[in-house]
Design a protein around this nucleic acid. Structure first.
Lengths: 228, 228
DNA sequence: CAAATAGTGTCTTTGAGACACTATCGT
DNA sequence: ACGATAGTGTCTCAAAGACACTATTTG
């Protein structure tokens, strides 16, 4: 597959000799979680120029022998060695000057990991210490490497929208959860408070109650549910 | 920008020498219109292998000096020399074997053009004779070049969804239109009939009535509206 | 005036929103 | 018993759905 025949070269030459001068392709990951009642994202401090010392999304060049999803999965597994993680293509960014060194096109992906899962896969604490609150990241005076701030703003918006018409919110929670906890997730993602009774009517068909209660709180315990 | 410094090469070599072995990037266009009460798309018959003689989406390799949007606009303008055309990124397709010759990643775009606009920009008739009905294209026994059939199915779905929560349907119509015509567009895109009175309540705030009537029909003429 | 399409009024049903109430735990 | 959180019943209101009606044109 990597060998290019003469016919292919002729074909490609019709397109301005793209064989010899191609953009590079990367994937960048927006790994979201909810911690301490805040929507957070995994960022890393760049160790090399350009944008040295600045925060950026984890990413990698796409290899010839992997699909985009596989590349995204590879970047993700370098951070958290976990299976069953929500992964969705967000948008492809192709501005010419988005990387000052050369032409790079980036396919961005959204990943969502429950904080409990993140903690168990993070023995060294390198991930959880790299979690940044979205409101803080998106502050006006704050600046990120490349166009990553714009990506995060776009990803934040995608999540806000999808929460309304999908069951995306569940991706932030473990298998079992209480309804007050689920409501809190919705409230954080939507950015507004919800009425308890109405909320429960809305999500009623999405959940099944278990026999267990969530104990450990100082007051009346709440029932644990699963997705139905 | 096309010059790669030694430092860049070192940087890139960390990523498996991607400098010398990169995927190619193309854009593929889903140009939709409505003609004869059917959703249709512009397809071209491939003149060369692979998939010679088969139908495919119009597309092109992305040049180093153009953004993805510009590349999409270039392909579009090769078909229809028109401004003010709805253009939206759909999805990026990165399967390894999607092009049998080599590794090609394709960024797909949806374009929507009112049939009237398409006709005026199509003196030779080369576009309108290349319009294919979506239901026909998506038939099970029908086959298209590359993964283009899958792209069209995905684009069709995107349109069906966005019609419900955006004003996308207006993109299929000229500046002035009648409400029966607008309703027909909604019905075609949604794939079901709508009640006249309810439909008008729903779109009431999106439109402004003009002083003109649409004449030429055999019966009572309907009023022309614009987007508000 | 008949046929056909354009356009409107209104009853019903559904679901979101608001709020008040009851229930059950730990201390 | 009390404080605090969990959980429910129900009224209100707005929008979607269904259907019947009136209006205006051509031939």
């Amino acid at each position: 597959m990597n060998h290019i025949s003469q016919k292919d070269v002729e074909f490609l030459n019709q397109y301005d000799g793209s064989v010899y001068d191609k953009p590079s392709i990367t994937v960048d990951l927006l790994i979201f979680t909810i911690q301490d009642d805040e929507l957070k994202i995994v960022l890393i401090k760049r160790e090399k120029p350009p944008f040295k010392e600045m925060l950026s999304l984890p990413g990698a060049f796409v290899k010839m022998e992997e699909t985009l999803e596989q590349a995204a999965g590879r970047v993700l597994s370098e951070k958290v060695q976990l299976s069953d993680i929500y992964l969705e293509q967000l948008y492809t960014w192709g501005n010419i000057e988005r990387d000052p060194r050369m032409r790079v096109i980036s396919v961005s992906y959204i990943a969502i990991v429950p904080i409990e899962k993140l903690k168990t896969a993070d023995e060294t604490g390198t991930i959880c210490s790299n979690l940044y609150s979205i409101p803080w990241v998106l502050q006006e005076n704050n600046s990120l490497a490349f166009d990553h701030k714009q990506m995060i703003a776009y990803g934040r918006e995608r999540i806000r929208n999808k929460v309304e018409y999908t069951e995306l919110a569940f991706e932030f929670l473990p298998l079992q959860f209480t309804l007050p906890h689920l409501q809190k997730v919705y409230e954080i993602l939507l950015g507004r408070e919800l009425y308890k009774a109405n909320f429960r009517k809305k999500i009623h068909d999405m959940v099944t109650e278990t026999e267990e209660l969530f104990l450990g709180g100082a007051h009346r315990p709440s029932r644990l549910y699963r997705r139905s």
